[in-house]
Design a binder for these strands. Structure first.
Lengths: 347, 347
DNA sequence: ACTCGTTATGTCAGCGCTAACATGCGCAGT
DNA sequence: ACTGCGCATGTTAGCGCTGACATAACGAGT
């Protein structure tokens, strides 16, 4: 009876759209679209009027629709082992800040060193057709490798530096870190150098550091000496245990390299309790240069990874790949950064 | 000549779509869509076959298209002052983990306590029609307030707890923290209690802590004693300066509350250098219970904010609001969490 | 005057998916 | 047998935006 074409129920709330702005100004929607994406192609006068209408109406561009239409988005996904740890936080910060300075958003997930969780995150991220993807290290599940290989967006692998792998690499070689620590200690005259590695860490990179340690030590004609505390979960406690066990045994080491600063801090505290003089009775080295390393007594010699720089450089490489920042040269695929040995009182 | 309807150039790469999967299985696209979003409405047999086709083809659902069509997304935006600081990292971690356990993704941005940066991030996030939005504290720009008020998605304010504000609140009252610290010190017999606040921090919450400190002290008939180090940017150095200045002056305080653990750590080190006995010559309290607080000498008494719990509870409230997890009750709007006083050697 | 190129703006279709509605089927109840 | 209901699946029409292409307006060069 009444009406031949019953109007469909509208699904969306009264959200303000490009068309609303266009109608207000008296131009086509496309011109308003250009106002946001290619402002230089809109005349000065219209730019003015559109700008006013946008803020008068409180229009917020719908990036979802835009991304669907253009098959591009300004989202970059990052999968990192953890957010709150002392190691990666700076990388995330540097990455996020550099990205957002260029109008890109960060989609973040943590994997806790689990390849499955990483794969889930990568899959979910790919659903958003992100502009690029950043993953940590090179230990991926087969599924992740397949997903990454099957996409044509830029992929960056950070923290580890593996020249033979295809994705853009931004990081350092953990092997070198072990080497750097040993050289430092050998140079200071230490000879019986132990390496303490907390088994619980899913952090495979620590194994590379230990390998570097062992290789240099053997090259110097000395014996590697690995110690794995029985306490797996709490690094601080594990570090204490390591110091106590090693320094109550015979022979004793004259230097201990801990796989990270948390372990080392535990070691220092145990040493203090045992009345040992650090570094005279035993030198201590850590890895990470965590915030507290310089506050300990004695302050901790350690190796500082380029956490922030990794995040920033990863972002730069991403932005270059996307053409968001100018480069005359092709995007650099291999980016090897330097760790820095920070010598303090404990060695 | 050749063809009456010249086929438009295809814009997208050969991405696999729902239709490809549907054709493969011999069903309609909608059935495949249901396979992902409402699997219980698809027969067991089809579920099986669709599942196989999906993994055979390596199909990854296009969440952008899905979000546009349904006007919903599984993205939640969070704007937080910083990522790498010791305070917020745990909150992000707890939030992210809880969200991702339920299939939601985290879009993250940091504001560095700048209302403008916060507003930019909120605006950009809103463009993604996120499922919910989380912001830190209640100090927003006017624009941010307008944006948040104009949306109908759940908004959660974290860290501060402001019962009179409209959004869901998950946090604690910093005022109470100041109070808690003073009560602890008064209970231990300290009477000349100073408060050290680093002016450079854009962290307004610290002001609330100081107000709580001052109020309780005055209520006890004692004089508040504020000290602002001249060094603005480096909290550790500023803490040293505060300790030196205060303990070389007359009269001296018998206890110092530092606005955060970084300042307090600097204070402890300076005290050690000056040969002061902590807590006999002067007690020291911090705020934050940063990772190193228990590793210092003497170990630092401090107040531990519920960082992780805030992140987790914020995520729970978001998920409840979205109906992603079951609740019989309406979503709790006010969530006041407890800080914990951690008594160690420095008081 | 005419062509050509450049710039500013508009028309149309469609990105990949899902809400609303429609259909068809099997089965219980009478 | 027939109605009515619930369940599995299909058809249609967009979601809000942008790409390709079209067009109009204008000045410069011949």
């Amino acid at each position: 009876m009444s009406d031949s074409s019953p109007p469909r129920k509208r699904r969306t709330a009264g959200r303000i759209t490009l068309n609303d702005v266009a109608r207000e100004v008296g131009v086509s929607a496309l011109t308003v679209s250009r106002f946001f994406n290619h402002p230089e192609r809109v005349s000065e006068e219209l730019r003015q009027r559109i700008g006013e209408a946008v803020s008068a109406l409180g229009y917020v561009p719908n990036l979802v629709a835009g991304s669907l239409a253009s098959a591009r988005s300004r989202i970059v996904g990052m999968v990192i082992p953890n957010i709150s740890g002392p190691i990666f936080a700076n990388t995330i910060q540097g990455f996020s800040d550099t990205l957002s300075r260029h109008g890109y958003q960060l989609l973040l997930a943590s994997s806790y060193f689990s390849p499955e969780q990483e794969e889930n995150a990568v899959r979910a991220f790919l659903g958003w057709s992100p502009a690029a993807l950043v993953v940590t290290s090179h230990f991926h599940s087969e599924g992740t490798e397949k997903l990454l290989a099957g996409t044509d967006i830029p992929v960056v692998e950070i923290w580890d530096y593996q020249p033979e792998r295809a994705p853009i690499q931004v990081g350092f070689q953990h092997y070198d870190v072990g080497e750097m620590a040993v050289r430092h200690l050998l140079g200071k005259g230490y000879r019986r150098i132990a390496f303490v590695l907390n088994s619980a860490a899913g952090d495979f990179s620590a194994l590379d550091r230990r390998d570097g340690y062992a290789a240099i030590l053997e090259a110097a004609g000395l014996q590697p000496w690995n110690f794995v505390p029985s306490i797996g979960s709490a690094p601080f406690e594990a570090g204490k245990e390591a110091m106590e066990t090693l320094m109550q045994g015979t022979p004793k080491p004259d230097a201990i390299i801990f796989a990270n600063d948390n372990l080392a801090a535990g070691g220092l505290l145990a040493a203090q309790r045992m009345g040992l003089r650090i570094p005279d009775d035993c030198a201590v080295m850590g890895f990470g240069d965590y915030a507290f390393a310089h506050m300990l007594l004695p302050s901790l010699s350690t190796i500082r990874p380029p956490s922030l720089a990794i995040g920033e450089m990863a972002a730069l490489r991403v932005l270059e790949s996307l053409g968001a920042i100018a480069t005359t040269l092709p995007v650099q695929r291999l980016n090897r950064l330097e760790c820095q040995l920070v010598e303090r009182e404990s060695t």
